[in-house]
Simulated scan of single mutants.
Amino acid sequence: MNDHNPRYSNDLAGRASLCRDVIRSAGALVLSGFKESSERGFSLKGPQDFLTETDAASEAHIRQAITTHFPGDAFLGEEGGGSIGDRVWVVDPVDGTANFARGIPHFCISITYVEGGRAEIGAIYNPAQDELYFCRRGAGATLNGKPISISSTVTFDAASVEMGWSRRVPDETYLQTMRLMLAKGANVRRGASGALALAYVADGRSDAYVELHMNSWDCLAGLLLVAEAGGVVCPFLEIGSLRDGGPVLASTPAIADGVSEASGIPILAHERTAALQPA
């Protein structure tokens, strides 16, 4: 990518083009690291919180591309932190690092562009499966360029709900939410990548996703994807923040109220283009 690439005009269209390009190029870097299994290793940032060298390399690659083409934009990454401005890119360079480190091909890169307090562009890419989820506010959601939509599930006894978990929330609170979800009849599972879990709600592979605390870089792109795919989401930037994170809920509409009741997480009215926070 060069400094004067005409694809990267200084507007949302240009940023969308950069987002697509850089998430794929970062994906190639991440996939290369994943395939080098004989040399792969991991360390722990905290209990059950894996850090690989690939995380840092992926984030540096994305940061450099954004700085080169949009030097006035802020950058907030999981590994290196950053600043928050009116225009900010929020990046998780590898979500699902525990899977990555253990040779499980269920991980992704997540990039969100936020302007004026609203997520405008979202992308989630699993390079191991070559699946790129992408959306712009008001333009719908796609998987590898084809439109996607949430599931048509209407009852809990047919629902598959994924739940995320972390040490930031007491075990008993998490278990109580799971008990309530199971009592409603849902199948509850965990795939260990919150960003992909949200993408799977957007394309109907799951019916809902709940995490009682999630960082912004893990969830912003996925929440916008779900909203653009016709789903219901929580007002993340009202009940949480870019810096500190917050609770996350995304659901197909028919069971959203029940998921909200079980988790205690509020939801927005069902409007495709009203995701996350008003202007």
Rank of each mutant, 00 (worst) to 15 (best):
Leu143Ala: 10
Ser149Leu: 13
Ala123Cys: 09
Ile109Trp: 01
Ala123Met: 05
Asp49Thr: 10
Lys45Ile: 06
Thr67Ser: 15
Ile124His: 01
Gly122Ser: 06
Thr97Phe: 04
Leu143Val: 09
Glu59Cys: 03
Arg102Asp: 06
Phe42Ala: 14
Ala101Phe: 07
Ser43Arg: 14
Gly145Lys: 12
Val88Met: 09
Ala101Ser: 15
Tyr133Leu: 07
Gly81Leu: 05
Ile111Lys: 02
Ala141Cys: 13
Gly82Glu: 03
Pro71Asn: 11
Gly96Ser: 08
His61Gln: 11
Thr155His: 03
Pro105Gly: 09
Phe42Arg: 12
Trp165Met: 13
Phe107Arg: 02
Gly122Trp: 00
Ser110Val: 10
Val90Leu: 04
Gln129Ile: 00
Asp55Ala: 08
Ala141Val: 10
Ser151Arg: 00
Ala57Ser: 10
Ala159Thr: 10
Trp165Tyr: 14
Gly122Pro: 01
Leu143Cys: 12
Lys146Glu: 15
Pro105Cys: 11
Asp92Ile: 01
Gln48His: 14
Ala60Lys: 15
Leu76His: 06
Gly96Asp: 07
Gly145Phe: 12
Thr142Tyr: 15
Ile84Asp: 10
Ala65Ser: 15
Pro71Arg: 13
Ala98Thr: 13
Pro47Phe: 06
Pro71Gln: 13
Phe42Leu: 15
Asp130Ala: 14
Asp130Ile: 13
Gly122Leu: 03
Asp86Arg: 08
Arg102Pro: 01
Gly72Tyr: 01
Ile104Tyr: 07
Ser166Lys: 06
Thr54Asn: 07
Gly117Asn: 13
Thr97Arg: 09
Thr67Leu: 14
Gln129Asn: 11
Asn126Phe: 06
Val169Cys: 12
Gly81Thr: 03
Phe42Gly: 10
Ile62Val: 14
Phe134Cys: 11
Ser160Cys: 06
Thr153His: 00
Glu78His: 11
Val154Gly: 04
Cys108Thr: 14
Lys45Asn: 05
Leu143Pro: 05
Gly103Leu: 03
Trp89Pro: 04
Ala159Phe: 02
Gly145Met: 13
Ser160His: 06
Val88Gln: 11
Gly103Ile: 04
Phe70Arg: 07
Ala159Lys: 11
Gly72Arg: 09
Thr54Phe: 05
Glu120Ile: 05
